[in-house]
């Protein structure tokens, strides 16, 4: 039996603070395809996602952008009969290699889902869930991490007086920011966001977008969105996908003003999709 590769990293923040170096590729897909049974949902995608940038993925419904996103931390494993070909390289390893420890991978690639999915526990326990998984039991330490994460998610001031209240009592926007705080508490390097604002009202959406603007300084963020204005507002790079194929991937400004591919142009000008 081959030895299991753990994706655990000893000190992730030390490397991240190294700001002077040129931006490196953080995650790279090489001819990556993902199948649901026989259906190829993502078709031979190759892309390099740079570190500490916001990468947006746009495209019509069912184009495979969410699937691609969920492939980055192997959440698609939950769906029976999925299989992948090609490579998804993170930290020097193909994360689809057989002997990868998925649990440690997911601890480094955080995820925020479409609908706020807080646990039916207290606010504190929600945020502390990840750190506790990593074996942090010291109450003081936990409290520090919780506060830091909640501050980073820009929700600390709203909840600091009711940390022991059930998280389900919060509003949708607050719940979503709590989910972000929860994802931040495990100190990931990459934050995947799967349409994080689609279930929220415009006010809450604005708050989340502001938050993304703050978080880009520390994290590599990949965000899937239906809302092209949102992609234009928050992202540095944008990828346009259509029917599982990566059609165009480039700087957001360029993609929205001067797309190379006519399909992209049709989509962003609203002729289809």
């Amino acid at each position: 039996m081959t030895e299991e590769i753990t994706m655990k990293k000893i000190d992730t923040f030390a490397e991240r603070s190294d700001d002077k170096k040129p931006r490196k590729t953080h995650i790279e897909a090489k001819d990556f395809s993902l199948f649901y049974g026989d259906f190829e949902a993502v078709r031979k995608v190759s892309m390099k996602i740079p570190k500490q940038k916001v990468t947006a993925m746009i495209g019509p419904s069912g184009c495979g952008k969410s699937t691609l996103l969920r492939s980055i931390n192997r959440m698609n494993d939950l769906i029976p009969s999925t299989s992948a070909t090609g490579e998804m390289i993170f930290d020097g390893h193909n994360i689809y290699a057989k002997n990868i420890d998925v649990v440690t991978l997911r601890a480094r690639v955080g995820m925020v889902f479409q609908k706020p999915n807080v646990f039916p526990k207290s606010i504190f326990d929600n945020v502390a869930y990840g750190p506790r998984l990593q074996g942090i039991k010291n109450k003081q330490k936990l409290a520090e991490i919780v506060e830091e994460s909640l501050r980073n998610a820009a929700i600390w001031d709203e909840v600091k007086d009711r940390l022991q209240a059930n998280a389900l009592g919060m509003s949708g926007g607050q719940q979503q920011r709590l989910c972000i705080a929860r994802a931040l508490a495990i100190k990931p390097e990459i934050l995947l966001m799967d349409e994080p604002t689609s279930a929220l009202d415009p006010k809450a959406t604005a708050k989340i977008e502001d938050l993304i603007g703050e978080l880009r300084k520390q994290y590599t963020i990949i965000i899937v969105t239906h809302n092209m204005q949102q992609a234009a507002r928050v992202s540095d790079l944008t990828a346009f996908m259509y029917e599982g194929v990566l059609v165009e991937f480039g700087k957001t400004k360029q993609l929205f003003t001067n797309p190379e591919n006519p399909q992209t142009e049709n989509y962003i000008t609203g002729r289809f999709g």
Partner: peptide, 18 residues
């Protein structure tokens, strides 16, 4: 139990058993 709970927990790096 909503799938979302399971996804959230797994997404945070919890094992299945946990």
């Amino acid at each position: 139990v909503p799938r979302a709970y399971k996804e959230a927990s797994l997404g945070l790096g919890a094992s299945r058993w946990h």
